[in-house]
Amino acid sequence: MKVAVFLPELLRHLFKKPATVDYPFKKLTVPEGFRGTPFLHPDLCIACRACERDCPAEAIVITQESDVEKKFKMVIHNDRCIHCAQCVDSCPTNPVKAMDMDHLYELACFDRHTLKTEWVFTRATPKREPKPVPAAPASDRAGIPAK
């Protein structure tokens, strides 16, 4: 058994730059694809509520502003958000998703209510591609007419 096996490693680091970062003054960059906070592209949203249904933290609330106009309001409660990005996965808009994640990670604040973000928008009508011609009458789904 040897004595002081750690010594060379320790002395080697004495005059080396520390591995830690002087955090609030110097910041590390987050990698591409980092899941920060979710946000909405209001001009793309078709108000299908898929994100609202799949959000595990129930952080997304979509309400209709008035019945006549197709005006909707989406509120994201960032205090409840768990940054799983399931809303981005669930979003059906193509080819650009209406929900997206940014790279923010410093979200601490004194009042949780200030973490709410909201958008009021008119529902986007999805540009319909030419309908795929139904190849055969959908006989396997009884009772459901093929669109």
């Binding site: 990698p31 694809g33 980092f34 899941r35 940054h83 990005a85």
Partner: peptide, 18 residues
């Protein structure tokens, strides 16, 4: 930290990879 950074790069988060 090396493996944590790898996981962050793969999944977008350090702890809850989802």
């Amino acid at each position: 930290e090396v493996v944590m950074d790898l996981l962050e790069m793969i999944s977008g988060n350090r702890v809850h990879y989802a």
